[in-house]
């Protein structure tokens, strides 16, 4: 798309777009290309010898039980994180939208965890859920009689990183749901109320369908967040442990590439992640286009 009235200048537009292109080319296209090359190479840890092996790295990757386990963990992790944070955000936004007084104050009180870095959120939750010092873990042990120990138990560790990641995202989702809820025409709700629909009925029959575009967008963003940005949580809290039980895909790329120095495998994993995110983006754009047609 372009404007009707435009400027004509031979060199200026190139000059203006140049910084963006340069940065994108050096830090995006070139590395992506290198990664693609590297993913088909077998190289020793010192980078002295390279051998072209076609798709061997990928084949090996998908036969590696550790990688398959990491995929399962990532799916469980991101689905639970997205579920907890989306339902939490939606719940709080619905309540806040019902509230008549102190809306601004409520919003302020719920918004600020957004600014907390994932890594710091990890530290805070580590303190709460720490097996010997955590107050929440004490509560779990006393009230539910569960022997809670995220340092030794893989499931507990996974629950801990899910909590730490979801907590931060609740406020992100809250902002979007608040905006979405305020965009729903009040006349629709009133009409439904006249027809005798209860507040709960109205929520499920009108608010949720009207929110579905927001819901979709937020789901995509949450999946991307839990796939990639949660690196900080994992690295500060569990380092992928215990026994690889929180070793999500993006952490494995780092571990295999920078600690294990298995460059070929790490690059292949990067390429897999890259294809995944391209797929998600394309799907999102397709959906967004359809939505535009729907609303006319």
């Amino acid at each position: 798309m372009i404007k009707r009235s435009i400027f004509s200048n031979r060199f200026l537009p190139y000059f203006l777009i140049l910084p963006q292109i340069l940065v994108t080319a050096t830090f995006f296209y070139w590395p992506a290309l290198q990664g693609l090359m590297q993913s088909m190479m077998l190289s020793d840890p010192f980078g002295l010898h390279n051998r072209f092996v076609w798709f061997d790295n990928f084949i090996e990757l998908f036969q590696d039980p550790l990688y398959l386990k990491s995929i399962v963990i990532t799916l469980v992790f991101s689905a639970s994180t997205a579920f907890v944070s989306i339902s939490g955000g939606l719940f709080l936004a619905t309540l806040a939208n019902r509230a008549l007084r102190a809306k601004a104050l409520i919003r302020t009180c719920l918004i600020w965890p957004y600014a907390v870095a994932p890594a710091i959120s990890g530290v805070l939750w580590l303190f709460l859920l720490h097996p010997s010092y955590g107050v929440v873990s004490l509560a779990i042990k006393r009230w539910f009689g569960v022997d809670w120990n995220p340092v030794l138990n893989g499931t507990d560790a996974l629950l801990m990183v899910i909590m730490a990641s979801a907590w931060k995202q609740i406020s992100y989702n809250f902002v979007f749901f608040m905006a979405g809820l305020q965009a729903i025409p009040h006349s629709l709700i009133e009409a439904a109320a006249m027809d005798g629909a209860s507040p709960f009925r109205r929520f499920w029959a009108i608010v949720v369908p009207m929110l579905s575009p927001t819901l979709f967008f937020v789901t995509v963003m949450n999946i991307i967040f839990s796939f990639f940005e949660t690196f900080g949580v994992i690295h500060t809290v569990t380092q992928g442990g215990p026994g690889g039980s929180t070793n999500i895909l993006v952490y494995k790329v780092y571990q295999d590439g920078f600690i294990g120095l298995n460059l070929g495998s790490s690059s292949a994993q990067s390429i897999v992640l890259m294809s995944l995110i391209i797929f998600i983006t394309v799907m999102q754009f397709k959906y967004v286009e359809r939505r535009v047609q729907y609303t006319g």
């Binding site: 372009i2 404007k3 435009i6 400027f7 004509s8 200048n9 200026l12 537009p13 190139y14 203006l16 777009i17 963006q20 292109i21 994108t24 080319a25 995006f28 296209y29 070139w30 590395p31 992506a32 290309l33 290198q34 990664g35 590297q38 991307i224 990639f228 940005e229 690196f231 993006v250 790329v253 780092y254 590439g257 920078f258 460059l263 790490s266 690059s267 990067s270 992640l273 890259m274 995110i277 391209i278 998600i280 983006t281």
Partner: peptide, 29 residues
Amino acid sequence: VYFDYRLRTVAFVTVFCTLMLPVEVRILP
């Protein structure tokens, strides 16, 4: 947006292909 030049579409596509790719997926290279 405000200029029309030969490589405009190319520039546009080049930039927007990177829309959602975070650093995390291309760390090593």
